[in-house]
Amino acid sequence: MTYLSRIRINPLRKDSRKLLSNPRAVHGAVMGGLPNHKPDDRVLWRMDPDNPHRPHLFVLSPTRPDWTHIIQDCGWPDADGDHAAVRDYTPLLSQLAVGREFAFRLTASPVQNTATPTKATPAQAARLTTRAENGKRIRGFRMGHRTAAAQLDWFLTRTDRWGFDIPATRSDPAAPGI
């Protein structure tokens, strides 16, 4: 069974400011809330800063989580209301079907691996020199795509593998009276 969680974060607390500014801290806090986590389980999380006064942490996990530590350190532990909502994700998954359209946000890191960077940093140049001297094959360099066109191409070439597609732009007719 899969669970979707929403945790309220108090941005005025010291530990929550660490979460809001450091993705590694969020990852650690999320993994700390999954007592039955297996190494091959996928856990997805997203910090939703739409409202800077009331950010939320969303987590999709294969096991039932316990967010007590996040509520105590980063939430409003003594306030009224629902601090962390944990719901079964199965009803939504059962509604997925071919042809259904969903909207979502994605944060990704569009990168490529290359053995020969065009503008090598001093550390990369040293590794290339060492590789040439030893004749050994070393792992390539991970380089981020810097242009919007390259990032979009990186994304669009992977959507089919990820199980969805991005529909072509469409122009809907104008609403009546506009």
Rank of each mutant, 00 (worst) to 15 (best):
F102D: 01
I71L: 03
E133D: 13
K119G: 05
N36G: 10
Q124V: 04
I7H: 10
N51A: 15
V111I: 01
F164V: 02
L156N: 11
P91F: 00
D15P: 01
P39E: 13
D78W: 04
R131T: 04
Q95N: 15
L44R: 00
R131L: 09
P35T: 04
R161D: 08
N36E: 14
R131N: 09
D48V: 09
Y89G: 01
T63P: 02
L128P: 02
D40H: 10
R161K: 14
R127P: 01
A115C: 10
L128I: 11
I178P: 00
T114C: 05
R127I: 06
A150N: 09
D165G: 11
F164N: 08
A108L: 10
L92S: 07
A29L: 07
H37S: 03
R42Q: 10
P77W: 11
Q124R: 11
H56G: 05
D41C: 03
T129I: 03
R100F: 10
L96E: 05
A132V: 13
F102C: 09
N113V: 14
A25K: 02
I70P: 00
Q95W: 03
W45P: 00
F104R: 06
N36H: 15
T157M: 09
G75D: 01
Q112R: 15
K38Y: 09
W45N: 06
F141W: 05
H27R: 12
Y89C: 04
Q151C: 15
N134H: 13
R87W: 02
